[in-house]
Simulated scan of single mutants.
Amino acid sequence: MSKVVNVFVISPDTHSERRIDPHISVEQLKGKLELITGIPVANQEISILASESDPRVLAELTDDTKPLGYYGLTDWQVLKVIDTNPAVSLTVQLTDVTQVEKFELSSAEYEQRQDTVLAYKQRNKVGRFAQKDATPEVEDQAVDIPVGSRCEIESTEAGLSKRGTVRYVGTTKFSKGTWVGVEYDEPFGKNDGSVQGERYFSCRQNYGVFVKPEKVKIGDYPVEELDLEDEEI
């Protein structure tokens, strides 16, 4: 089995850690990176940076026929992908909302509707509409989720695996009960391990998240890799 290298892949809209076989060609790499970055193969310009903390350009992948090893790609270097024609990229199409017509309601109109979150809370006496003498919720019981465990978080999107590492288990100041702090492998999160000024663990921004224990599956979940052997999508 070929030795793989661990690298970071960055583009205007993505940032992830990947394992790559240095024997594949630049052309093969571009085909895989299109699925990750949303940038078409023809519009990709790729350069190798020394590291995340050292942005020196060590090489530019200008020859599609050369293997990555030809350019001296090693562990923890950065593959920086530039989009030469962002107007046609999938990521731009998904994030550009300037042409979307907005639907707006006045406060009075919103309060009159019966199909809103506000109406639901009023009917079910939730939140500020709850009875003041309601019985307090019972605190969550202790859970068997070891810190440092690999895990997968339940997702509402079909086919999307949100994997990461458990970094915190316990109570928090932002809500009652037991919460599990997870550092995702990719930027699917909402914070950097802190909420409302209180730090529970540390990670990069948008890699941290807090979820209830029932949404956490503990197991031997490896970091998602580029599947360089399987050419089917």
Score class of each variant (00 low, 15 high):
136 P>C: 14
204 R>G: 14
151 C>E: 00
202 S>C: 06
145 I>D: 11
180 V>K: 03
136 P>E: 13
192 D>Q: 09
217 K>R: 15
186 E>G: 11
133 D>P: 00
190 K>E: 15
130 A>V: 08
158 A>S: 13
138 V>R: 08
169 V>T: 08
200 Y>S: 06
187 P>C: 14
179 W>T: 04
175 S>A: 15
218 I>V: 14
160 L>Q: 09
164 G>W: 03
156 T>R: 14
156 T>Q: 07
194 S>V: 03
189 G>K: 03
153 I>C: 07
132 K>G: 02
180 V>H: 07
182 V>M: 05
215 K>I: 01
152 E>R: 01
206 N>M: 08
187 P>K: 14
153 I>T: 06
155 S>W: 02
164 G>R: 05
193 G>F: 13
211 V>T: 00
198 E>C: 05
182 V>C: 11
132 K>R: 13
165 T>P: 08
168 Y>D: 00
187 P>R: 13
187 P>Y: 09
167 R>F: 08
220 D>H: 12
150 R>F: 11
193 G>D: 02
141 Q>M: 10
147 V>R: 10
130 A>Y: 01
196 Q>A: 08
178 T>M: 09
202 S>D: 14
208 G>F: 06
174 F>V: 06
216 V>Q: 11
208 G>M: 09
165 T>N: 09
206 N>D: 13
212 K>S: 00
143 V>P: 01
199 R>G: 01
208 G>D: 05
189 G>V: 07
144 D>T: 03
165 T>A: 00
218 I>C: 03
203 C>R: 02
200 Y>A: 11
188 F>P: 00
161 S>F: 12
152 E>Q: 14
203 C>I: 02
174 F>K: 03
149 S>M: 12
184 Y>K: 00
169 V>C: 09
194 S>D: 08
201 F>L: 00
202 S>W: 06
195 V>W: 08
145 I>V: 14
195 V>A: 00
209 V>F: 15
145 I>S: 11
131 Q>P: 07
136 P>A: 15
165 T>D: 02
198 E>S: 11
218 I>K: 03
168 Y>W: 03
159 G>W: 12
178 T>V: 15
216 V>E: 07
215 K>S: 12
132 K>P: 00
188 F>C: 01
172 T>W: 07
178 T>I: 15
137 E>V: 15
173 K>W: 05
150 R>N: 10
206 N>S: 09
209 V>P: 01
210 F>Y: 05
197 G>Q: 07
146 P>Q: 13
154 E>G: 05
210 F>I: 04
217 K>A: 14
148 G>D: 03
